[in-house]
Lab assay of single mutants.
Amino acid sequence: HNGKLCKLKGIAPLQLGKCNITGWLLGNPECDSLLPARSWSYIVETPNSENGACYPGDLIDYEELREQLSSVSSLERFEIFPKESSWPNHTFNGVTVSCSHRGKSSFYRNLLWLTKKGDSYPKLTNSYVNNKGKEVLVLWGVHHPSSSDEQQSLYSNGNAYVSVASSNYNRRFTPEIAARPKVRDQHGRMNYYWTLLEPGDTIIFEATGNLIAPWYAFALSRGFESGIITSNASMHECNTKCQTPQGAINSNLPFQNIHPVTIGECPKYVRSTKLRMVTGLRNIPSIQYRGLFGAIAGFIEGGWTGMIDGWYGYHHQNEQGSGYAADQKSTQNAINGITNKVNSVIEKMNTQFTAVGKEFNNLEKRMENLNKKVDDGFLDIWTYNAELLVLLENERTLDFHDLNVKNLYEKVKSQLKNNAKEIGNGCFEFYHKCDNECMESVRNGTYDYPKYSEESKLNREKIDGVKLESMGVYQILAIYSTVASSLVLLVSLGAISFWMCSNGSLQCRICI
């Protein structure tokens, strides 16, 4: 991952900044910058967002509201009850120091605090018919004063009620008058409520006091790749198909172990950190130390980045220098085999997901714990399936590479015959000098055995068991695999060879 928040398929997220979902939807004055928000790819909250409900109280069923919003990608904020005409018999300019803005008392931008007009609070009834052709999110509140005197001074009615009804919602609220500790300079409380109004449905408000009335509502448009994440990451000019709280993932790998919460087309989250597919040879310690064997393909974004291909070729060293050249036929066979294998694994496992966190309130801790156990169970199954699949494929890959290298080895052996000696570690020792032209003939299969047989015969008789390297004779190393990324691999195959001279070296080696 890149540690950044990015656009998702070209669409920017909605960053709530210092506000949370509650503050944004109710219209906390400190969240005025969010009022123009219309569309987004996903919503970003920060872990310690401080601006929620400015007048103390709870947004009821907040967790369910977050779940609903996680599939919303755009909205239209509109005046559901026009301020100047909807409440002619009531005062609608209630403000509070708890919702101060720029040093002055204020109130929510989407709600109206209705109080008595003169000395009376006549029963009010108002309704709205949803003609938007889509779901409408309606929010309101109920004020709970701290004393009967406060109730009387604001609403005149000691036994007030609030009723809200639609086809799918029907509740009646009565204020709970009680002494409470002071929070944000208030002994009173406000509880906030919401409902989704279906197209064509009607919502009716009736009250004799204590109503925090809707002013603006939201017509919602769903987008199934949307979601809500909690993150401290910063926004950058970048684009992605998959976003996590820790950063964007741009990967076609089937798995990731970065974060379980994802938005967009994302690899499946697994616990494993070692889900690797081999593309090189079986481990040979001396070669492995030099980083030549054991190439791997990573299938977990965050564990290993991208696929690494092994390729086969020849390396030689003689009086004229040293050089490398790919054996294109065996390399292409290996590439085709690995590509098919990788595609097979991805096809089997690479279903892209959006995974969002589930919200539970403080009273639902047991449910949250149960949900976590269920999620953990599914996660263990996914991890096991992934590891088992790759384990089985790896064994076949190792066998496949062994065969490829063996074929190259036999190709060289059949040409050199007794003009060189096998020394048991995949290397041959020449009994004759071999210049670049000679080396090329070994690589392309045109090695002239009779041409060098007499010199080889004489050297075999002279050496008589002495280690060949100390006599200045020449080696050919018969097994060799270097490691390159897919891009470098293609470039390498396009070149005939490249040279690395070893000044004054008397050794001649050709490596497979």
Score class of each variant (00 low, 15 high):
A297M: 08
Y480G: 08
I263H: 02
K358C: 09
F255P: 04
W382D: 10
D327E: 08
E437D: 09
A295S: 06
S497N: 10
P260N: 00
F498R: 00
M235E: 06
V442F: 01
I479P: 06
I308N: 02
T351F: 05
H236Y: 11
I346L: 13
H236N: 08
H401D: 08
K457W: 10
N252G: 15
D402E: 15
D309F: 09
L468R: 04
L370D: 09
I476M: 15
Y449P: 12
N369A: 13
L370T: 06
Q317S: 14
T351W: 05
N362F: 11
L458S: 14
C238F: 04
G494K: 02
A420H: 02
T354D: 01
K274R: 10
G357R: 15
K365P: 02
F293W: 09
L506Y: 00
F299W: 11
Q332H: 05
H316V: 14
I287H: 11
N459F: 10
F430H: 13
F430W: 06
C438G: 08
I381F: 15
D380S: 15
Q475Y: 04
M439A: 01
Q415M: 09
Y314H: 04
V473K: 03
K274Y: 00
F360E: 03
R271D: 05
N362T: 13
S344Q: 12
A495K: 00
R290D: 00
I258C: 13
L275F: 02
E454M: 03
S502V: 13
T331K: 03
K341G: 04
L506W: 09
K348E: 04
N385A: 06
E440T: 08
M277C: 10
E387C: 08
Y289F: 14
L281P: 13
S485N: 03
Y480L: 12
G303A: 07
E429H: 03
S251W: 06
E368N: 08
V278N: 04
E454F: 13
V483A: 12
S492W: 08
N385G: 04
K241H: 13
F353V: 03
S492G: 00
I496E: 00
G424F: 10
I381S: 02
R460E: 11
G337R: 15
F293Y: 07
V278S: 10
H432F: 07
L489Y: 15
Y384R: 06
M235Q: 04
I335V: 15
Y431F: 08
N371W: 14
C266E: 04
L275D: 07
N459C: 04
I249M: 12
C508D: 03
N343H: 13
N407D: 08
I296W: 03
I479F: 09
N503I: 05
C501Q: 07
P245M: 06
G310H: 03
K451S: 14
V488R: 02
P260I: 01
G465Y: 08
I479V: 11
L398V: 10
I249Q: 01
K411S: 10
Y324W: 11
F299P: 12
L363W: 08
S441V: 03
I496V: 14
I258G: 01
D448F: 08
G310E: 04
Y289M: 06
K413D: 06
A386Y: 03
A478M: 08
R396S: 02
I300F: 05
N232T: 14
G303F: 01
D327P: 02
Y452D: 07
I476S: 11
E347R: 11
C238E: 08
G302V: 03
V442C: 07
N333S: 11
T397F: 06
N503H: 03
I249T: 08
S441F: 11
V491R: 01
Q256V: 01
L490C: 05
P450A: 09
Q475F: 10
F293Q: 02
L458A: 13
S441I: 08
L398A: 00
C266H: 09
T397V: 09
L416T: 09
D464H: 12
Q352M: 11
V466S: 03
D327T: 03
M439D: 05
P450T: 08
P285E: 11
E301K: 08
E368S: 13
S231E: 00
G465N: 12
Y324A: 00
E429R: 08
R271L: 13
A325T: 07
R460L: 08
W304N: 03
N418R: 09
T354W: 07
Q320I: 03
L388T: 10
F293S: 04
V270E: 00
E359W: 05
M307T: 04
S505F: 07
D464G: 08
G294I: 02
H315P: 00
H401F: 06
L408N: 07
A478E: 04
L379F: 13
H316A: 01
E237S: 13
Q415R: 12
G280I: 06
V412E: 08
L392F: 15
H316Q: 06
S481T: 09
I284Y: 10
P260G: 06
G357N: 07
C511M: 11
T446V: 15
D380Q: 11
L408D: 06
Q256I: 06
E393P: 04
Y384E: 07
L363E: 07
V342C: 02
T383A: 06
T305G: 00
Y314Q: 00
D380M: 09
C427H: 03
N350T: 13
I479T: 13
N503F: 01
G377A: 09
N459P: 00
A355K: 11
F430L: 09
W499I: 14
S322I: 06
H259P: 00
S344K: 03
E301I: 11
T383K: 09
F360M: 07
L389K: 01
I423P: 00
L363M: 14
K365A: 10
K329Y: 08
L408P: 07
K467M: 00
G504K: 10
N444K: 12
G472P: 15
G306H: 03
E368F: 10
N369I: 07
N385Q: 15
E319K: 08
S486Q: 06
R276Y: 12
A484S: 08
Q475L: 05
D309L: 05
L275W: 02
K413T: 07
E395D: 10
G280Y: 03
L363D: 04
A386W: 08
C266G: 04
